[in-house]
Structure formats: C-alpha cells, structure tokens
C-alpha cells in the first residue's frame, strides 16, 4: 500500500493555494522575484520553493487556452535520487513518500543530477547547506493528515489517496470523458511509475513535462556512482572553499535590508 496524488489539470484554476500552503506548512521563505511577462513565479523550483504552478498559454488557431500545472517531486516508485545517494540520505518510505535525512547528507548533489524531474535543490545560501525537496509533508502523513497542497486545493485538482485507487479514478475519468482528457496518465508508467500522477486535456509535452519510457532510472545512477571514489577527495576540498564563500556572502546579505525574505531569516 502506498499513497499518491492525482493532479487533474483540467480542474486547476491556477490559484496557487498549494504553492503558499507548502511554504506555510514547511516554513519556507519567499524568494526575490520579478515579473518576466508571465504570472509564473518563482521561475523554478528551489530550496525555498518545493512546489509551484507553471502557466502555459496554448494557442490553437484563434482559440487560446491557459493551462496550469503543478510542479514538484513526483515521489518515484523507484527514486533515482535515492539510488544516487551515496550515503543513503534519501529514501522512499513504505507509505510512498521520498524523504531526505539531512543528518546523512554530505552535500554531493548527485541526487540533483540523477533526478529525471529536476527536483532536489541545494541550499546555496546556507553555511550548512542541505538538499531540499518536497517531503510529501511526511510530518503530516505521520499524523494522518494529507499533504498541505492537497488539502488546500479549492477545486479538488490535487487528490491525495492510495495510489492504486487514484489510478482507478484516473482511468474511469478518461473513459467517461475521452473528449476531455488526453489518453495518458502521466506518472502511471513514466520512469517505472511515480506516486504523483497527472491528467490533462493537452498533451503533456506541451506543458514541458519530459518524455520518459517505463524503464526505472536508478540504473543510470549506478553509472554516476562509479565516479564517486575519484571525486570524493575533490569534493571535500571544494566544499571547504564553497563554505567559505557562502559564509562570507551570507554575512554580507544579512546586512542588507531586502524585505523579501522571511522574517526569521533576518534574525540570523
């Protein structure tokens, strides 16, 4: 038995309640952004943004559609981030959540490179940087609560439940309304299946979803793993240097009075 999420993009109104509910629950600070001619912001996932909504204007002749897609960790059934992690800091819990243990992490960022969806993000601005990513709100799961994003979704576009049940729901919806949905549950089979799955009315490649086969990716991680022994020494030296630079920048940043940071950040 493992949990999952079914995200039905045809129901998403792009209100971004999920984006803020995630930051609210996980106490993530705001990022400094600017309007780049789009509603989409922040521009990408980061250590401070574990989920966000991407906005897609799709023109079909004179007809325009506007599709909103939630990006974030897919909680792969066979997570390549976990496979790539040389110290076992990432693992998939029996209930399906792919989680991270900072205690074990050495900051090698292999998980970042291994992830097919570009999810794990490094805390570049921290003196003791961690890898950050969606935890499926594991602290909520432990209390029998659904993840913050799913709970806050006004239209039920994000449904949380047993993955198998959600798959059935998804198939039933597609069968009932073949005119509405593309015949594809993204995440049902991709990279061996993911816990977070999507339904859409437009082909997923138009929404920037990468195209993957059903083969689980962890085997690619093994290739990366072979590079570990010679690299490890270099990493140690580099990390020392990086730490020094970051610490210096952090000190300088703390003197700035840029308001667009979480208050607790200023206390440091």
């Amino acid at each position: 038995m493992s949990v999952g999420m079914l995200i039905d993009l045809t129901k998403c109104i792009g209100c971004r309640g999920c984006q803020i509910a995630c930051k609210q629950w996980n106490e993530l600070p705001a990022e400094k952004t600017h309007n780049r001619g789009s509603y989409e912001n922040p521009p990408k996932l980061s250590d401070k943004t574990w989920t966000y909504i991407t906005f897609h204007e799709i023109a079909d002749g004179s007809r325009v559609t506007w599709v909103f897609a939630k990006d974030g960790c897919r909680h792969c059934l066979e997570p390549s981030c976990a496979s790539a992690c040389i110290v076992g800091a990432l693992h998939k819990r029996p209930d399906g959540a792919v989680v991270y243990n900072a205690h074990k992490c050495i900051g090698c960022r292999y998980c970042e490179m291994a992830c097919p969806f570009g999810i794990p993000a490094f805390q570049w601005e921290k003196p003791v940087p961690y890898i950050q990513k969606c935890t499926f709100c594991e602290d909520r799961l432990d209390q029998g609560e659904e993840p913050a994003c799913a709970k806050t979704c006004p239209t039920g576009a994000i449904e949380f439940g047993e993955r198998n049940d959600l798959l059935q729901t998804a198939h039933a919806r597609m069968k009932e309304r073949p005119d509405k949905y593309v015949n594809h549950i993204y995440g049902e089979k991709e990279v061996g299946g993911t816990s977070v799955m999507y339904l859409s009315s437009v082909p997923f490649n138009k929404l920037g979803f990468p195209t993957y086969g059903p083969e689980p990716l962890p085997r690619y991680a093994h290739i990366a793993m072979n590079a570990v022994p010679p690299t490890i020494g270099v990493v140690t030296v580099l990390m020392g240097g990086v730490y020094w630079i970051i610490k210096r920048r952090d000190k300088m940043m703390s003197q700035e009075t840029d308001g667009v940071t979480e208050p607790t950040e200023k206390e440091g």
Binding site: Q19, K23, P29, A30, T33, H34, N35, Y39
Partner: peptide, 12 residues
C-alpha cells in the same frame, strides 16, 4: 506579505 509578493512581484 513576502509569499504573495514573490508570486506577483511587479505592476504590469
């Protein structure tokens, strides 16, 4: 509120 400013940072 920084979270809301992050999403819509500028007049457009």
């Amino acid at each position: 509120l920084p979270w809301l400013v992050e999403m819509q940072p500028d007049m457009f």
